[in-house]
């Protein structure tokens, strides 16, 4: 399949709006919480699942997803599309993701603005790209191709990072904004990642948020990180810190009460403890006129 011009691809895709504001506050569904969620049907607006964990042939994971989907909106969040890589997109992977999307009818599909491997090998990590006009063009064309295979618009997430390239010609927020515009896709704004990068690379987090095109921001992520002394590490194993909550309040006021997700992957607490963070997000969304979930 050849690369499709973004504008042409967009016309053939579902463009009926994201409906993101109505979802309110949700949680990332993790295996350790399957039992609690299925037994208690907790009061959360929606669940986000890691797409690749459910790109299996069968068995319990898919059964759990079907049961959760029966009661909640679900978003598929991928970590392996490698939209910024140099080798061709993995069409088998995209078709598998399309099958999963057909099966669970997610509110939307998201992945990261990054590369994850080279030479047919996978690092299973999210690596930053040089912020250049050439990279914008390269990534936007790949997002357009992915959107065409998937038959729907993608939502791309800003990543946390620990290095910057000398060849970068623009700020990170300019890069995110230009890629999203060129690819005509949505943005998942990870507030913790902005905070981590602002500390690691020395920029103003609020300036980043202020420069986001509000009409494209579909979702927020909230998570915890660790202070490693000379840098912050995006670990998703801690509660959300006060600075990130304050940044979230600024983002909600500036952009609007879009769907918000509590993202916790390690050092998982009992589900009710996560519900307290969901409630804290819900209060802030409601204060801005959102559904709260």
């Amino acid at each position: 399949m050849g690369v499709t011009a973004p504008a042409r691809a967009a016309r053939s895709l579902k463009m009926d709006g994201w409906g993101s504001g109505g979802l309110g506050a949700g949680v990332g569904l993790r295996r350790e919480h399957y039992g609690y969620v299925l037994e208690n049907r907790p009061a959360v607006g929606w669940f986000e699942v890691i797409s690749e964990n459910f790109m299996v042939e069968g068995g319990r994971p898919l059964r759990v997803l079907e049961q959760v989907r029966a009661d909640y909106p679900v978003v598929l969040h991928g970590v392996a599309m490698s939209l910024g890589a140099s080798e061709p997109l993995d069409l088998d992977y995209l078709r598998g993701l399309a099958r999963l999307a057909q099966r669970c009818e997610p509110a939307w599909l998201s992945d990261h603005l990054c590369w994850t491997g080279a030479g047919g090998r996978n690092l299973h990590d999210l690596l930053p790209l040089p912020f250049t006009a050439a990279t914008v063009k390269h990534v936007a064309a790949r997002i357009a191709q992915a959107q065409e295979v998937l038959g729907r618009r993608l939502v791309i997430e800003n990543i946390s990072s620990y290095l910057q390239y000398r060849e970068s010609e623009m700020t990170e927020w300019e890069f995110v904004r230009e890629v999203a515009a060129a690819a005509d896709c949505g943005i998942l704004l990870d507030i913790n990642n902005i905070y981590v990068n602002a500390c690691n690379h020395g920029f103003a987090a609020r300036e980043y948020i202020a420069q986001m095109p509000r009409e494209r921001v579909v979702q927020f992520h909230l998570a915890g990180h660790r202070d490693c002394g000379s840098y912050l590490l995006d670990t998703h194993d801690q509660p959300i810190c006060p600075e990130v909550w304050r940044l979230f309040e600024y983002a909600v006021a500036r952009i609007g009460p879009v769907a918000t997700l509590i993202e916790r992957d390690d050092n998982l607490p009992e589900f009710p403890e996560l519900l307290r963070e969901v409630e804290a997000a819900r209060v802030r969304l409601a204060a801005a006129g959102g559904a709260g979930g």
Binding site: A85, S86, W115, G117, A118, R121, L129, P130, T135, Y165
Partner: peptide, 11 residues
């Protein structure tokens, strides 16, 4: 350095 070369080097 081209993007592909940069990514291969980092890999």
């Amino acid at each position: 350095m081209k993007l592909a070369e940069l990514q291969a080097l980092l890999y």
